[in-house]
Write a protein that binds this DNA or RNA. Sequence first.
DNA 1: ACCTGAACACCGTTCAAGT
DNA 2: ACCTGAACACCGTTCAAGT
Lengths: 220, 220
Amino acid sequence: MARPRKPLLSRDRIVTAALALVDAEGLAAVSTRRLAAELGVSGPSLYNHFRTKDEILDAVADTVVGQVDLSMFATADGDRPDWPEALLAWGRSYRAALTAHPNIVPFLAQGPGRRPAGLRQADAVFGGMVEAGWPPAHATRIGAMMRYFVAGSALGSFARGFVGDPGVYDPADYPHLGQAHLLPEHQRRVDEGAFEAGLRALVDGLALQYQRLRDGEPVT
Amino acid sequence: MARPRKPLLSRDRIVTAALALVDAEGLAAVSTRRLAAELGVSGPSLYNHFRTKDEILDAVADTVVGQVDLSMFATADGDRPDWPEALLAWGRSYRAALTAHPNIVPFLAQGPGRRPAGLRQADAVFGGMVEAGWPPAHATRIGAMMRYFVAGSALGSFARGFVGDPGVYDPADYPHLGQAHLLPEHQRRVDEGAFEAGLRALVDGLALQYQRLRDGEPVT
DNA sequence: ACCTGAACACCGTTCAAGT
DNA sequence: ACCTGAACACCGTTCAAGT
């Protein structure tokens, strides 16, 4: 075939196919040869559009993070934004974007923040918190801790870890896990409940800290 | 050589060598051939002791999680344990265990909770929280949310993501990231500060919830 | 039981060759 | 510029063969 007059591939087509493959069959299913086959080309063709496989996955990760809603940090001028509400809304949107594509999360979570969508997100959160009255050092920390929590919650399902077999949980070994084998069926409920409760606890705790800051008390 | 009179390998030796290799050269450096070479045997030998490579990494992950201190949940009978202090101490020990071996964290964080050390940990936390007066459903959630936060914090360094090159952060794109290129040098400080602040916020928020529970107020 | 080399079906990536 | 097949140096895993 050699070079066609109209390119068969584009970065966009590759990223779309890669995301579909990750979603359908997992991160391990994405090999350059397999992905190329999915696109009807041969393996090395991809290297005309991306320098490495990791660069492809970076682009996939970026489109996923790009789905996160950041509008809650863009407030009308002069308004003090309601930062606790903004954090809650952002946290939920962030988690929703990741859990929509759970198989890419392990790659996404370790990867560098160099990806544009991640930077835009860090920028928006930082700006929103500073505008709300948080000192810059605190604003940085808030962005980081939220990322920790959301990424951790999307990464390893807590409940998914427990298998359905009661025999695994010998009460002699694990005195409190007697009902643990029931967890898989409640999996999503447990994970979502834990996320929601943790998100609220985090924001409530930050509100306490904010209050102490306002009152001029020393804060660590 | 064939079979030696004294086995050359053992599960322990393999796990120790694998952890050393992961620490020294990263997760990607661990191939069965490379690991076997490190142990002075040929690749397939490992399959006499583990069924798959993932099983080896599971064992590595388990020894890392096994380093977490859980003693704060074992209280003298009759005592109501100081659960906020216990969560703080556990969270710090948990994070310390993971950050001591950062390269295994991506594997560890996604993997199943089937690993014994992870189960022991879930059991201890659940037991400790229930003993402190938390309803079982809440105790489960607390274990999960703490895991989210700690795993997330050990997994992707927030600060590490920012590269040292100021040119990357065009103020037109990221109006608030002007100083972001300074972050790498403060990397550990930022990550540890965010972890510590987040941990306190989380526990503070839980204390509020606990108070509401005691007062008989409805809690989501 | 526990090690070996050979073999199978894969990888990511490079490169010269084609248009 | 953009695709191809061939090639390189790898993978994880299976298996028959050795003691």
